[in-house]
Design a protein around this nucleic acid. Structure first.
Length: 665
RNA sequence: GCCGGAGUGGUGGAACUGGUAGACGCGCCGGACUCAAAAUCCGGUAGGGGAGACCCUGUGCGGGUUCGAUUCCCGCCUCCGGCACCA
């Protein structure tokens, strides 16, 4: 019913009910075939957040090592194991099979241990996932009474069965090296098995009776390892792998933590898996001309351990696409993550009903330039979508191999530790705040709280401040509309005589540049909103003066109209109303304001003057001054002079239009 | 345990490319308006010293590079997130 990724602490990530085990034949996507490409292509995802890439990397969990074949004593059976530490092969003192290992039956049949082993296997099968993964769980296991031969030294070592070995990773069997693996060490200690060190640090022996020696010192040497004795461990490792390969007892291998993607769901809502089961032909895919398979109408949608579709008898019965005989449809439906893995491709051609999409259209629009989603999708949706894209590319259906060129992950909002999300019933109920302050205030505040990629804790405090800002903006608009007229945002050719007019013009153009950049490039809505607040403060301060002058009134209108336009993305309702109040019609059809270069740069700047790196004074200087003039002006400042008195200037640093630093001794 | 991310005032956060630390907001303090309160407006608000002009200290801790470090490098601490019996 669920994929590995959808089980959190042994519970369903959606509904929280306990996950149980049942044997079912189900459908998988072979995502493991793409493990290497999913990993390696991450190098091309330069702008993806590091944490997402890391999570995917961990999830795929590629590790290089070797497969080593052990032969069962007294039987013509070979059991391969996977190890990342072939250099510790000589230290293998026992061997462990996962309880689900298919070989167990044959190994114990008719032996005195058969009953005990079967009992143990039965017990572990009954355990829930949560029980089996519980932390600090004491090791359990049972001896089979059988032995296998260690290929490197011919030694016979006992075979045990234990649930600390997972059937789903590697080969479901391990060579146990208690001297150099913590888990094997714990097991050996529990059952009194031999612990033999084979890799030791250069400075002498290490006590492996208390704990495993798992470090990889650069000077580690081999001991108890036959002809490798005394060799540096890091040199011996590749030699042992080469030797295993030459003698046919092993080979280099790569193992992955990633499992195949279980897509079968025994639910109604989901795309039916388009397969027909025919008594004569077996499993037959539904021909393309009959796709898509559409869900039947059913009375009862509730899952009851088998798919609700199984009850739709008429829908199930179809002629076999191959032989035409009586056959039955597959009744599993697909995981809904399957749909979200390619919806963005379908969006490009959403109104077609003959084909899902036309390649030329899709290649023209995709990959998605900027994808935005929550971090919670880091390893589910985003990994699946990448996988689908590669599969569709390999099938020649699209021309690109990664779906999302740039990824931005927004943080989550928490209150009292619970996340604010659709699926968790919105702990911070927006409705209350919408009722109290309106949707504009809520939206503005949500964006003002901080950078959108960070998690946030909701606090009621600040929202009133955002509401106050919008009220002040509204009052400004009303005041300006009352004392001026003309277009909502007039064109300003010259600032006129008032210094306030120039200041307001500069601030307005500064805000346009800042807000545009914050929205488009930086995705920092909090600082964009702060810039709007600054502009409001400046305009409000200058308002009485500007209102008394004809050009000033134009500037006032211009600044106010611009401010309204800049606020529009964050508070659209109020902005539209305000725009109309200023005499405009539809703000959302206007073009975005553009900052004028001539108002962005002033003739003067405030030069910071440091002595030995410490700020001692500031002075307003003309931009046109030469380096020498700047230095002279700086040195002439009384406060600076006091710090230079009786000392020698050994270095003068001038950062143009910014600061001067005088280094004295 | 492994892997990521982050530590800045009372508080959310800002400082984008190594160049004025604390923008903007909240809170708090003082003032104006008011019979009073609310709302609104004005001023103040990193810490310490000083009557004051000013001075010193300060971006988790300890070092380093640099004329100059919240920003770069090395070593630690703490918190958050992901994975976790993965051989």
């Amino acid at each position: 019913m669920l994929a590995n990724e959808q089980v959190i602490d042994g519970r369903c990530e959606r509904c929280g009910s306990e996950v149980g085990k049942r044997n079912l034949s189900q459908w998988f996507f072979r995502i493991t075939d793409y493990a290497d490409r999913l990993l390696d292509d991450m190098a091309t995802l330069e702008s993806w957040p590091e944490r997402v890439l890391t999570m995917q990397r961990n999830w795929i969990g590629r590790s290089h090592g070797a497969e080593v074949v052990f032969r069962v004593d007294g039987a013509d059976v070979e059991v391969p194991v996977f190890t990342t530490r072939p250099d510790t092969l000589f230290g293998a003192t026992f061997f462990v099979l996962a309880p689900e290992h298919p070989l167990i039956d044959d190994l114990v049949r008719g032996t005195p241990q058969e009953a005990a082993v079967r009992e143990y296997v039965r017990r572990t099968e009954g355990e829930t996932e949560a029980e089996r993964l519980a932390e600090d769980r004491p090791k359990s296991g049972v001896a089979t009474g059988r032995t296998v031969v260690n290929p490197v030294n011919g030694e016979s070592i006992p075979v045990w069965v234990s649930d600390y070995v997972l059937m789903g990773y590697g080969t479901g069997a391990i060579m146990a090296v208690p001297a150099h693996d913590e888990r094997d060490h714990a097991f050996a200690t529990t059952f009194g098995l031999q612990i033999r060190p084979v890799v030791v640090p250069a400075d002498g022996d290490v006590d492996v009776s208390a704990a495993a020696y798992t470090a990889h010192g650069a000077d580690d040497r081999m001991v108890n390892s036959g002809r490798f004795d005394g060799r540096p461990a890091d040199e011996a490792l590749p030699e042992i792998i080469a030797w295993l390969e030459e003698t046919g007892r092993g080979k280099p291998t790569t193992a992955y933590r990633l499992r195949d993607w279980l897509v079968s769901r025994q639910r109604y809502w989901g795309a039916p898996i388009p397969v027909v089961e025919c008594p004569t032909c077996g499993l037959v895919p539904v021909p393309e001309s009959d796709l898509p398979v559409v869900l039947p109408d059913v009375r009862d949608y509730a899952p009851k351990g088998r798919s609700p579709l199984a009850a739709a008898e008429e829908w199930r019965r179809v002629p076999c696409p191959t032989c035409g005989g009586e056959a039955l449809r597959e009744t599993d439906t697909m995981d809904t993550f399957v749909d979200s893995s390619w919806y963005f491709i379908r969006y490009v051609d959403a109104d077609r009903d003959d084909v899902p999409w036309v390649r030329e259209h899709v290649d023209g629009w995709l990959p998605v330039d900027q994808y935005i989603g929550g971090v919670e999708h880091a390893i589910l949706h985003l990994l699946y979508a990448r996988f689908f894209t590669k599969v569709l590319h390999d099938a020649g259906l699209i021309g690109f191999t990664e779906p999302f060129a740039n990824l931005f992950t927004q943080g989550m909002i928490y209150r009292d530790g619970a996340k604010m999300s659709k699926s968790k019933g919105n702990v911070v109920a927006p409705d209350d705040y919408v009722r109290r302050y309106g949707a504009d205030t809520l939206r503005l505040f949500t964006l003002f709280m901080g950078p959108p990629d960070q998690d946030k804790s909701w606090t009621d405090g600040g929202i009133a401040g955002c509401h106050r800002f919008l009220e002040r903006l509204w009052r400004l608009v009303a005041d300006v509309a009352a004392v001026t007229d003309g277009p909502a945002r007039p064109t300003i050719a010259e600032p006129g005589p008032l210094p306030e007019a120039l200041e307001v013009l500069r601030k307005t153009h500064w805000a346009v540049a800042k807000v545009s950049d914050d929205i488009e490039r930086r995705l920092m809505f909090n600082t964009a909103i702060a810039a709007c607040m600054e502009l409001l403060n400046t305009v409000e301060r200058a308002r009485p003066t500007l209102a008394d002058d004809p050009t000033g009134r134009d500037v006032l209108r211009f600044a106010t109209g611009t401010l309204v336009a800049l606020v529009q993305p964050f508070a659209p309702h109020l902005a539209e109303e305000a725009w109309e109040h200023l005499g405009g019609t539809r703000l959302w059809t206007e073009t975005w304001p553009v900052a004028e270069e001539r108002f962005l740069v002033a003739d003067t700047y405030e030069c910071v003057v440091q002595v030995n790196g410490k700020v001692r004074d500031r002075v307003t200087l003309d931009r046109s001054l030469s380096r020498d003039d700047v230095l002279a002006a700086a040195r002439d400042l009384p406060k600076v002079r006091a710090h230079l008195d009786g000392r020698t200037v050994v270095k003068e640093i001038v950062v143009p239009d910014k600061l001067v630093n005088l280094v004295v001794r």
